[in-house]
Structure formats: structure tokens, C-alpha cells
Amino acid sequence: MVDLARALIRRRWVIIGTFLVFTLGAAFYAFSQERVYAFTTSIELGEFGPQEYVASASGTQNTIEERILLSVKRAYLKEQDLERMPFDVSVATSEESSFVNLVTQAPLDQQATVAAFHERIYKRLRDEHQSRLTILENESDAKLKNLRASLKAEKRRMEALEGMAVTPNQKAGNGETRTQTQAGEEVRATLTSSDAALTLLLSQLQLNERISEREQRMNEIQRQLREEKTRRSWIKPTRAEDLAIASLSPVGTSRSLILVLGALLGGMLGVFMAFFAEFAARVREVETG
């Protein structure tokens, strides 16, 4: 251990020199790098009814990555006469989420350019989703029209049944009056009147049952009509309120971490270089001796 310590002391300038070279190199690299920020655009998926989205978040992510992003990149490179993109765009989302995030890492002075590029992607996605919403709106309008027509038809049938229920009662009253006036004439007339009353009673029960069924049917149609109106009024298009919002602090490897790593690497290599220089010196001594 004493010999090692003596060797390190003799070669201290090698250690110090190597340490300073790597530390200063790391500092130069750290401060020469342009600071990069993360720019995020959150796109909220369009809705058609409570918790009914025009597309799933994962499906939207695949659509952007596999089709929209490539198309927008080609158009951008052609317009700007560039061979490669100055920045990249990643798409992030989470399961069961209604948001899809566009994320780009770039210098702060490119925020306007990144925002314009994100806006292109967002508009393409919004147009596609709007066409789907239009189809859903048309389907909903047709469904509402059919439900209103069914409700109107059921009301007409209900009115007809209620009219049939009143008429037999009136006839039953007139028949009973005639029967009372002829009560003393024939027993056969009394039997005939009893059969007619029984028939009217059965018919009335059937009518009441049919009226109850119609009421249930009307209530069901009215329920469906309310639900569809609520769903129809819930339409929200795909939207993005803020474009390319910059992160509060730079992203990537921090300057302090680069400096620390450079100093550690310089110290370890300095010790290695000191031992190597000492070993080379011993070898020369042996050869010359």
C-alpha cells in the first residue's frame, strides 16, 4: 500500500492533468449543448353521448402513428425543402383515457414551429373524427324520427282502444234499460241479456289488457326517446385547446450530471494513467539496468 501511495504521489500531475482534461471537456460539452424542452399538445377525443367516444385512445394513437404522422411529415419536408425532420413527434396515451398527447423535444426557440406542426396533425385527426360524428348524427336523427313516428302511432292506437272501451259501456247501459222494460215478458230474453253482459265484460277485460300493453309500449318509446335526445345533445368534437405547451424545465441529461460524470471518469482514468506511467517507468529501468 505504501508503494502504491508513493507511485500515486510521484504521478500526481498525471492524475491531476487527466482529471482536469476530462472535467473541462465535460463542462464544455454540457454548456455547448442547447437546452431542450418537451412540447406537449393534448388532444381530447370527441364524444357522442356520456362516455361514448368517437374513437378509442389506443386506436387514435395507431391512426396518428401509422398514417397521419407520415403524411404530415412528407408534406412538411416538401414545403420546407428539407431532407429530414428537425425534430420528432411521439404519441402517448394511457388506457381508458380520452386524451392523446403529441410530444416533441426541441429547443425553446422552435416552439412556434413545433406548434404549427402539431396543429397540422390535430386538424387531420379532427377532420376524420368530424366525418364519423356526422354519420353518427345522421343515424341519431333517423332514430329520433322513427321513435317519434312510433310514439305518434301508439297514441293513435291508444285513442282507438279508449274509444272502443267507452262504446260497449254505453251499449251495455241501453241494453240493460231495454231488458228491464221487457222483464216480465220472457225468461229467454233475460238469459240472452245475461249472455250479452258476460260477453261485454270479457271484451272490456281484453280491452283493458290491450290498453295497459299500449301504455307500457308508449312509456318504453318515451324512455328511448329521452335517452337518444340526451345522447344527441352530448356531441363534442375532437378538440385541442393549447398547442405545444413547453415543459417548466429542460429535459434530457442535466448539465450538473454531465459535469459529475466527467469528473468521475477523469479521476478514474487519471489513477489508471498514473499506474500505467509508473509501470512503464519501472519497465524502462529494468531494461536499462
Rank of each mutant, 00 (worst) to 15 (best):
K145L: 09
T181N: 13
T40I: 10
Q80S: 11
T181W: 03
S140R: 12
L45E: 08
E241Q: 11
L125Y: 09
Q222T: 02
R231I: 04
D3Q: 15
Q204D: 06
V2K: 04
L201F: 09
L4R: 07
T134N: 01
V36P: 00
T238V: 02
A115S: 11
L201S: 13
V72E: 15
V283S: 09
I211Q: 05
I258M: 14
K143G: 05
L261E: 03
M1A: 12
G252E: 15
K236W: 00
Q180V: 07
A274E: 02
R120Y: 12
G266A: 12
F31I: 11
M85C: 06
F275V: 12
L133R: 10
Y29L: 13
F19D: 00
N169L: 10
E128W: 07
V166W: 01
E159V: 11
A277W: 01
T60E: 01
N138S: 09
D81E: 09
L45V: 07
K155H: 05
T134E: 03
I68C: 09
Y37L: 07
T23M: 03
Q222E: 14
I16W: 04
L257S: 11
R223S: 15
W234H: 11
P237S: 09
F276G: 00
F276D: 05
P237V: 09
R255F: 06
D127Y: 02
M273R: 10
G175E: 04
A160S: 06
A142F: 02
T60F: 05
L108H: 10
A30L: 08
Q105E: 15
W13L: 11
T23L: 15
V166E: 15
K236Y: 00
T177E: 08
E34Q: 14
D81G: 13
S247C: 02
L69H: 07
T18I: 06
R84V: 03
R6P: 00
M1F: 02
